[in-house]
Amino acid sequence: MSSTVTTQASKSPPRPQAPVGPRLIRWGVTLIILIPFIWGALGLEISPGRIARAPELVWNIVSAMFPPDWSILGRSMDKMLESLYIAWVATIIGAMFSFVFGFLAATNMAPRWIATPIRALLSAIRAFPELVLAIMLIPAFGLGAFTGTLALGLHSIGTLGKLTSEVIEGIDEGPLEAMKSAGGTKLSTIRFGVLPQAMPNILAYWLYRFEINVRASAVLGIIGAGGIGADLFSFLKFRDFPQAGMTLLVVMVTVLLIDGVSGAVRRRIISGEPGKGPVSKLMGLVRTPRPAPQQ
């Protein structure tokens, strides 16, 4: 091979030096990841011994949980339903208010002096974890599902508001300009120019938020803000593992189901055609054909 290479060398351009930049970046990134990790691991007193023992300890708990105590299935499902209601209502609250805020926070819809403070407000809300919000609302609204719903709803406004405004900012401006130049009003541009483009994504985000809220509302009970979390908390505290297992199972199955259905619907909304997953197939079976047009 070498002889042919030398004949080629005359024709071929000179070889470049391997640049050092990428290599430096690679080392830099490694360090940026490694140093905080080591700092964290040392701070948490994570030793190889503890790591080695952890699987066994966790396994002990898990094997104590299963088989679960089926006798409390009814109760768990009731509590899970309460969590679901909380999640649903919170999502609706979030959707309703974030829709308005989303438009106000989008720089291509609202003037800067409105958009900027609204944005700041949304990120301020978002920065409170749901549970912290709930803790702060308890002195005013008392323990119970009402407070939990309010906290989840507020947090949803924050996250959905941001996502909505991003979707709106990401739309194609071409059709809007066409409408404006055709003399459309602001409202009609929104109705016919913005909504058709943005709505599928916004809807998908609402569903996605619902999936997240289901998980969050399952947790709220820990601080007494309604739902199934209180059950799991007390079962684990009093080491009633089979009952805790049942509670956990109900949550897992519910979340899996909701994720499946909601995910299929989201894909359907975004792509406009049914997906290929099992849930989509089921939906296809259930969906009745459109009535024949009137003669």
């Binding site: 007193e45 952890a54 947790v219 684990l236 949550v251 897992m252 994720d259």
Partner: peptide, 29 residues
């Protein structure tokens, strides 16, 4: 999907039961 189906605080509760109350190790897990 099963891993995702369990909320973060439930993991925390389970790991706390397993490795001991007040342990940041449980939190890291």
């Amino acid at each position: 999907n099963v891993i995702r189906a369990i909320p973060d605080l439930f993991y925390a509760m389970i790991f706390v039961s397993a490795v001991g109350f007040g342990s940041p190790f449980a939190g890291a897990l």
